[in-house]
Simulated assay, not measured.
Amino acid sequence: MPTPPSTEAIRSAPKVLLHDHLDGGLRPQTVIELAESSGHQGLPTTDPTELGAWFRDNANSGSLVRYLEGFAHTCGVMQDEAALVRVAAEAAQDLAADGVVYAEIRYAPELFTDKGLSLEQAVEAVQEGFRQGEAESGNRIKVGTLLCAMRQNDGWQRIADLVVKYRDAGVVGFDIAGPELGFPATRELSAFEYLRRENAHFTIHAGEADGPESIHQAVQYCGAERLGHGVRIAEDIKDGDVGHLAAYVRDRRIALEMCPTSNVQTGAVGSLAEHPIKQLADLGFRITVNTDNRLMSDCSLTGELAAVVGQFGFGWDDLRGFAVNAAKAAFLPLDERRALIQDVIEPGYAALAK
């Protein structure tokens, strides 16, 4: 029987990350230092180890109110250009250190305008940070940006406009985030129609806090190319019988951006053992494995992959498949996706699987 991939071996593997929130991945020490320099009040502690544990405990509390308290602090310290540059640069560095060779990191620009930054200033600062982080990591990683509109707020079009405006500067796509239940993706269909007319890419958070109907709206009404989480597509599969919606998602190769630890924390699944990732992978869905919020979930992509290896017995072929799936679904030009797979992923996993 083959030896399961070890955590250290997984860390050295070339990985592709499609679902990671900038404001959910700060270093605890950075939160503390930015809070001090900006005058942000209310941190529960200024000890980095204790603060990291506080974010994790909130995420594990089962309370959405407590979970969101963490973002009040991270977004609260990300309200000037210098802070945004630093946080973005550190995100790129941290992911590169974890073996991520390509990442799409998302955020909502409107969350960083409380102290007077314009949406454009926020975007340009984050892009500068990513470029700095890439260079400081020895260009071992490339970062693409997804800009999010908040479901509960109006004005999705202005974020879609930014995606088009900055797509030659590293912004690769659009997303809607925030409360899924009660705020359908169809609220501002015109934003998605505009993005398609402008040949721009987009993913949509769906199938996390709401069920298959939310996925149906995202795919059939909005035209989502990928699904953020998408874990509840499993509700359209009964005793191995794949329903029409699930079959459409699978057959059209619409990637599922699954985040195992976060999916448990938010109640999308009851436990890691109940996560449908293995079932969906066996049925041929385009599965990708992601982090969601590295600070809140106290996780890394290496850790997420190691967790599903331990729970479901995935081997090197499966992990290579997840990386290839993510590369194929990335919002990159075809030649860059091919090069990522052929020149980086395939040789990297071939060496590890020997």
Rank of each mutant, 00 (worst) to 15 (best):
A9L: 15
R11N: 14
S12M: 08
G25C: 08
L26D: 02
T30N: 07
V31S: 05
I32F: 04
Q41G: 06
Q41M: 10
E50T: 10
G52I: 00
S61L: 09
R66A: 15
Y67G: 13
G70E: 07
D80I: 01
A88L: 01
D94Y: 01
A97L: 09
A97G: 10
V100T: 09
F112M: 13
F112P: 01
D114P: 00
K115W: 04
L119E: 12
E120A: 13
Q121Y: 02
A122V: 15
V123E: 04
E136Y: 01
N139K: 14
K142T: 15
V143R: 03
T145H: 03
C148S: 15
R151S: 06
Q152Y: 12
V164F: 08
K165W: 01
Y166N: 05
R167N: 15
G173K: 12
I176S: 10
I176Q: 10
G178T: 10
A185E: 08
E193L: 11
Y194N: 13
R197Y: 00
F202A: 05
T203P: 09
T203S: 15
G207I: 01
D210F: 08
D210H: 09
G211T: 04
S214R: 12
I215V: 12
A218E: 05
A224S: 14
I237Y: 04
V242D: 00
Y248A: 13
Y248T: 11
R252G: 00
L256P: 08
L256A: 09
T261N: 07
N263W: 08
V264D: 04
Q265T: 00
T266M: 07
T266P: 01
A268V: 09
A273K: 12
E274H: 14
K278P: 02
L283F: 09
F285D: 01
R286Q: 15
L295A: 00
D298P: 02
D298L: 04
C299D: 11
S300M: 01
G303I: 04
E304M: 09
A306D: 14
A307S: 14
V308W: 01
V309C: 13
Q311G: 03
Q311S: 14
D317P: 00
L319F: 09
A327Y: 05
A327Q: 06
R338Y: 03
P347H: 04
G348Y: 03
A351P: 00
L352G: 09
